[in-house]
Amino acid sequence: MEAATGPSVWGLRGGERRLGDRLFSGAAIASGIAILTVLAGVAIFLLIQAVPALSASTDELAEGKGLVEYIAPLAFGTVLAATLAVIIAVPLAVAVALFISHIAPRALAQPLGYIVDLLAAIPSIVYGLWGIFVLGPAAVGVMKWLEDNLGFLPFFQGPASVTGRTMFVVGIVLAVMILPIISAVAREVFSQAPRRQQEGALALGATRWEMIKMTVLPFGRSAVISGSMLGLGRALGETMAVVIILSGSGGITFNLIGSGNPPTIASNIASKFPESSGIEVNELILSGLVLFAITLLVNMGARSIISRSERHAAEGKKRA
């Protein structure tokens, strides 16, 4: 305590810092504030622009529907498409990540990793075109088969689309789009799985797959979850691919293979905005606010899962 009042033996008095430090912390603070300002600005913009729609009467609104009636199918379609994509993508991404980190010979693993990463570099509009010209037509036969053989499930009740512009195809395309992010996160963590635990499992007489189940997957579990959340976030907001592919002419339905699918919020905005005017624009912005809220919730969920697993890891290390 007494030493603090006198001049420091190190020649630096309290509060005096070097120029470089000051510049760096200034720049860092400014960047942080700028990002928060932009985020707040977007949120405020959405709120202000959405308010007129809230007070408008039903017949002023698009399609003469109430707000809930209008936005609920959109929100449903958004969540359905993104969930479907995650359900398809996660097992694939985990398999790809495991193949690269643990199964493929090194000479094959690295190029394969690059190729998977390259999938993320393809613009979404290209995915959309691929979906509509290649995957959609190719899926017509599959969807017909699903309707004929699994039609008792609500997902495949049909009638199957003859053009392939369905939620089913959108789910697959979105899955391919989010595969790289999930698999990259998973791969990174899988390859850091502690070697001594893997050897421990093998020495017990585990096969490679049993070893992976016992050590690598539990170790990478939280990474897979947070990668999936990131993927889900991307799938929720994906616009162009969905606009191009999806025949969004329906309401809330679990039927994945028909023509009448619920559109997603983002695709609906992209599709309706150019020809909208007046209160309808406010309504679209309100739907954007709903999407913003959904995405925010997903990201917060991912954050909390990641930080919880980090805390677990830290506690584990302390004990060990």
């Binding site: 421990g200 020495a203 017990l204 007489g205 585990a206 016992m214 539990p218 584990g316």
Partner: peptide, 30 residues
């Protein structure tokens, strides 16, 4: 490896498993 067991330099219990599960891990394989 099922007939020749091994103990390593660093203790390496499976961190996500309980004490019981650790001991039972090999048995569930065999």
């Amino acid at each position: 490896r099922r007939q020749v067991g091994m103990v390593f330099q660093q203790p390496n219990p499976f961190p996500t498993m309980s004490i019981y599960e650790n001991v039972a891990a090999g048995l569930k394989l065999n």
